[in-house]
Design a protein around this nucleic acid. Sequence first.
DNA 1: ACAGTCGATGCACACGTGTTCATCCCCGTA
DNA 2: TACGGGGATGAACACGTGTGCATCGACTGT
Lengths: 345, 345
Amino acid sequence: MRSPVPINAKPASIKDIARLAEVSHATVSRALRNSPLVEPKTAERIQRIARESGYRTSAAARSLVTRRSNTVGVVVTSIADPFVAGVVSGIEDTANQHGFCVFLANSHAEPDREVSVVRSFEERRVDGIIVAASRVGAQYEELLSHVQVPIVLLNNQHPSVFAHSVTIANAQASIEVTRHLIALGHRRIAYLGDAQGYQSDTERFSGYRKALRAAGLPLDRRLVVRGDGKPESGRTAMARLLVLADPPTAVFCYNDLSALGAMREIRDHGLNVPHDISVAGFDDLYISEYMDPPLTTVRQPMQQMGSMAMERLLQIIASGDAGPDVEVPGELVVRGSTAPPKKDL
Amino acid sequence: MRSPVPINAKPASIKDIARLAEVSHATVSRALRNSPLVEPKTAERIQRIARESGYRTSAAARSLVTRRSNTVGVVVTSIADPFVAGVVSGIEDTANQHGFCVFLANSHAEPDREVSVVRSFEERRVDGIIVAASRVGAQYEELLSHVQVPIVLLNNQHPSVFAHSVTIANAQASIEVTRHLIALGHRRIAYLGDAQGYQSDTERFSGYRKALRAAGLPLDRRLVVRGDGKPESGRTAMARLLVLADPPTAVFCYNDLSALGAMREIRDHGLNVPHDISVAGFDDLYISEYMDPPLTTVRQPMQQMGSMAMERLLQIIASGDAGPDVEVPGELVVRGSTAPPKKDL
DNA sequence: ACAGTCGATGCACACGTGTTCATCCCCGTA
DNA sequence: TACGGGGATGAACACGTGTGCATCGACTGT
């Protein structure tokens, strides 16, 4: 069942190549890196020999002397979250483009995992860390602030000193969503948020509140419910709204997955989206335009944000610093899940 | 904006700890690994000093001598694919559990990326590789067969010698889906597949064919269309089916994302799922039960499959070999997207 | 012909860790 | 007291690569 090559054959080293080419290992080292110090002809010969013998430079040995691993660590709550997956995809693409490899680790928002992951990254001497965990508790902050390599936070700009960030304009985008619902004629608009203490939730809720206030609408605390950002909890949170004596005519959801669950619950109550209740989300997952009805939401350029975070990190690694924190705008995408409320309400 | 710690401060080495503890670096090495050779009292003292000075063992230096990196490489077509993300989540969880870190790399099914990724993994001396790329072309196979570390293929058992595999019982599950549609009374059942030459597609199609034959139904080539596994191509492929003079009354889709697009196209033609056309998928993404209607599909235990692949790899790394290849069964999950065909057809 | 210059290459050390072997010290026993 | 044994520790080498410095040969200009 296995290849004919013995599995424990130790890989060819630079010295093996040197012996074959009848030069010193120093010359091989230079030749393989295309140093101008070595004569073109011998360089070519050495490279040919290396190629033929399947030589692969040992990144471990190299990084030991260069103090660079060309490696970054990425911590996420869960890669199974489609938003996170989009971001990581962007990160990996630009990392690969620059010769970097990415270590991926789930934290599942468990403090134990968080410390073990960061420790592991430190041991592996990553050149930088990207945290897309959305929640940076006090203990986690303490941990990260002692890390010796640059850190970029994604969707979590931290008030403190130890990290740079790439975020989306949560408040502004939320204002636009809420304004959109108000403009349609809604007056009882619910907020279905996330209870895990994410900064994004705080900011999105604050945008929702501001828009209400600007329109002279009251903030009804009973219309504010929270889940965990997954469909099932969106569903149960929506259920709490539907049993109200005076249920909302529109719901602004923390993210598209919550909205998915909310829509499901609404249908199961025999109501129609958007005819009876309008639903808006946040993220614009690439399934969202295929939902029935297609979901009104805020487009968050996930891949691009990941890409920006990575480029930012690379710049810090190279030049020691990057400019001010980046905030990308969100784009309101109006689709079929939002409509004017029924006249008789 | 930065931590007070100078960024280029070189991390404490084992020798620094040795100096502080007034012992040799050998003793430190032993103490940190809890070797019985060192006196418990001094071991404790050394560990305290190491902890206080924030020492982190250099994985690079260690792996240089141990010839083990405690690292695995994972190649996927795209982490943005929710199925892939589920699998990778399972992989990472069990890897982390065993002290391993995972390198994640997208290949985007581009041959260039594939070779560069594998080369990069080799340089980093990963202890093993998991390929969840679903497609292993001739060139890729040639590449992988020369790799010196164990390889586990996911959903792509390869007839050759160089790799182990974890797969789902594609053919059997597809037979069950098709049988389910036949049992509902359908006689014109389409197959909406994947055109990228994935083995999964071949097997699922073959299951579809077998079930038709077993029921004495003819295979109509016009009812077989293919896309790329994403919603948009599911939509366009469905469009080709809808313009037929005698369109199908049911569609079995290669995966849930294709089904999502197909359902959208059906609705856009003013038709109803499942009343006019039944739709079945494959994967059971965790959004699928929230679709409208909820999707009939085959549950593929993504996380568990990832976990199994990783455990398999670990076993090969540890003991040199693992048993025969693993095939997990798929579970037909019947939901609202499939129903008997209209009587008048 | 000779000194000086420059291009190409080798020598030797460093990076941080694990491990074998030797050394040293302390204790018990003959 | 002398000897042996065992437990704890240090010295030294190896892992594979990069690089400063020395060396060596060839070429140029006088």
